[in-house]
């Protein structure tokens, strides 16, 4: 399970970085989103990957670590707010600068 999980995270981050490098607002936003997905999954996995271990003491012999779950919830909320902000900012940039390049102008060939 760990190998599958880490390969997934690797693909997510690699795609995210590739999209970031496209330097156009929409791919950049998608790239940031993919990276933040990967980061959230990574945080989640820091409580170790187990099945059948509820995060409540006394329900079963083994229990999962609740802290990473709390952390990942916080990170998801913050990441969501930030993504929303970037989307609004990019709409504004498109209106003000008439270009969807992150530098605000088309690169010179």
């Amino acid at each position: 399970m760990e190998i599958l999980f880490s390969v997934t995270l690797g693909i997510l981050v690699a795609s995210g970085v590739y999209l970031l490098m496209r330097a156009r607002i929409y791919p950049v936003v998608m790239g940031l989103t993919l990276i933040s997905y990967a980061v959230n999954l990574f945080l989640f996995a820091m409580g170790r990957l187990n099945t059948g271990t509820p995060a409540v003491i006394g329900k079963s012999a083994e229990y999962g670590d609740p802290v990473p779950q709390a952390l990942v919830l916080t990170a998801i909320v913050i990441g969501f707010a930030m993504t929303a902000f970037v989307v609004v900012l990019s709409l504004r940039a498109l209106g003000e600068l008439r270009s969807d390049h992150v530098d605000g102008e088309e690169p010179r060939e």
């Binding site: 940031l32 980061v39 945080l43 902000f85 970037v86 900012l89 600068l97 605000g104």
Partner: peptide, 19 residues
């Protein structure tokens, strides 16, 4: 807006590293 785009995107990547 131009300066802000760079600032925001860079700091979002930074936040991912932080996490």
């Amino acid at each position: 807006v131009r300066a802000g785009t760079h600032y925001v995107v860079l700091n979002l990547v930074g936040s991912s590293f932080f996490l």
